[in-house]
Structure formats: structure tokens, C-alpha cells
Design a protein around this nucleic acid. Structure first.
Lengths: 129, 129
DNA sequence: TGCATCGTACGAAAAATATCGTACCTTAGA
DNA sequence: TCTAAGGTACGATATTTTTCGTACGATGCA
């Protein structure tokens, strides 16, 4: 198998798509209006732009929706965790040739990772075995 | 400060650009031809496409080049580590709201992260303090 | 009933990325 | 000197992603 190939279980969400997913993850199934309002807390986006994105996400099978009401309710098809694991996996493979420990090293070396975080990580590891 | 904002120190390298950076990281300063050949081990790319990308990367200030010879030699401006740290930082912020330990949890929970990797990580942590 | 409000659908424009064709220069060697 | 090989420059096209305008259907209510 060639090197840089990735499994395309799900089409990789684009940046704008990820923003929307994040809103849905945080607040649960939502209407377009709600999502659009959340997005607008960070930057200006037209309502129909968000609508279109969410429709595209639905076409791609990343979201599904409940159309029983006029206000459609959008829901991520995959659980937050599962999607994040995929993205993380891709990230590790791309940047660290799959080596989680290398990624760790950078995380630990990064001064933005606080002492508390590091302690927390240690506790996690000890609790594993 | 608004939530989802990110520091744009360097323009974020795009996917195709990252591919090129990775070749340069792995093999050191290189000519376009060399990079192109490496890329072609994974997928077909026309020589001039790679050339153009590398010129764009240079315009963006991500690469610099030695033009003293006819065959220009391209070099990443920032060290591999620095760039990766930035990308990682962005990644953690975007997907894990900046929580490194949350990212860790997923890394550890991922069956693709091997026992050896986990042991390695533990060793790293113990060696820290 | 009439109309303002709020919803979806959808094509098309805009913007960002990626790829390529062609022009043209330089060098090496027959 | 001439030509083939191999280099850069760069505009144009293709593709992907993002944004938006417009059409039009539902609903609520004066």
C-alpha cells in the first residue's frame, strides 16, 4: 500500500463544516437558525450560507435531519468522539507518522500546556495499567 | 477575545503545501525536481504543479530559496518542530478547546495506539518532573 | 383574506486551492 | 554552433469550498 493514503470512511469535514459540527456537539441537535446564531458570535455569516452548509453536510452523510417539523432539526450521524478520533488519527499519521508518543512529546514540551494539564495526564496514565 | 480565534503567525499551510514541507523536513533542502519525485511516489503530480506550489510557499514566506544556482534550493523558513507545534496547538484548540489531557485520553483510548506507544509515553512522563 | 415572518431549496457567484501548458532561458555536449 | 535536456516564470484553467441571492412554501395573526 502506498504511503500517504488515508481511510476515507467519512469524507473529511472541511473547516467551515467543522465549525458547524462543533456547535452541534456542544449544544446537541439544533435548527439552522440556532447554529447560525452561534456562528455569528464569532464572525458574520449569512443565514442561507449556514443553511447551505448544513444541507451539504447532510448530503455527505455527516449530518442527518428530522424533517417532521418545518424547522428541521440537524443531528450529527457519528458521535463526537468517533469523528474526533478519526481526525486525530489522521493528524497523528500525517504529522507524526503515526507515533502518538512523538505527538505527546510536543504537547508536553509546549509551554502552553499547563502544569495542571501535565499532572492530569500523569494521573490518567497511572489509572490505566 | 472571541472564542474561536487563532493566531495567524504564519499562514496555515494547505494540504498540498504540507506534503511538500514534509519532504523538505525529511530530506532537507531540496530542488523542485527532487520534491516532485518524492510526491510522485504517492500520487501523480506534474513537475510544474510542484514548482508552482513551491513558488507560492516561497511567496507566503513559508519557504525560502537559494537562487545562486540555476537549480534553486528550497528551504523551510521555520524549523519542523516550530511549525508542527503551531499546527498541534491549533488542533488542540479547535478540537479539544485547548485541553491537552483530553486529547491524550483519546490517543490512549484509540486501539491504534499500541501498547509500546503507551509504555513509551509513560516513560517520557516519568522522566520529566 | 392579506401580509409579515420565518422556514427550505437551489443555482450561481466568489474565493481559495490545485494543476497544468507554454514560453523562454541556460547549460552541456555532439 | 546547434540542439536536447532540464531549469524557472507565470497566466490560465480546473476543482473545491464557501457564500449568498432569489424563489417560494408554511404559519400566525390583524
Amino acid at each position: 500500500m502506498k504511503n500517504n493514503q488515508v481511510d476515507h470512511n467519512l469524507p473529511e469535514p472541511t473547516k467551515a463544516e467543522l465549525e458547524i459540527l462543533q456547535v452541534l456537539w456542544e449544544f446537541g441537535p439544533s435548527t439552522v437558525r440556532f447554529v447560525n446564531e452561534k456562528l455569528n458570535e464569532n464572525r458574520e455569516v449569512n443565514y442561507t450560507s449556514t443553511l447551505k452548509q448544513m444541507q451539504i453536510l447532510t448530503e455527505k452523510g455527516i449530518l442527518k435531519r428530522d424533517e417532521s417539523q418545518m424547522k428541521h432539526i440537524y443531528i450529527p450521524v457519528e458521535a463526537e468522539e468517533k469523528t474526533k478520533v478519526q481526525l486525530l488519527d489522521r493528524f497523528v499519521n500525517t504529522l507524526y507518522k503515526g507515533s502518538a508518543s512523538q505527538l505527546m512529546m510536543q504537547l508536553l514540551g509546549n509551554e502552553k500546556t499547563s502544569k495542571e494539564e501535565i499532572e492530569e495526564i500523569k494521573r490518567l496514565l497511572e489509572g490505566m495499567e
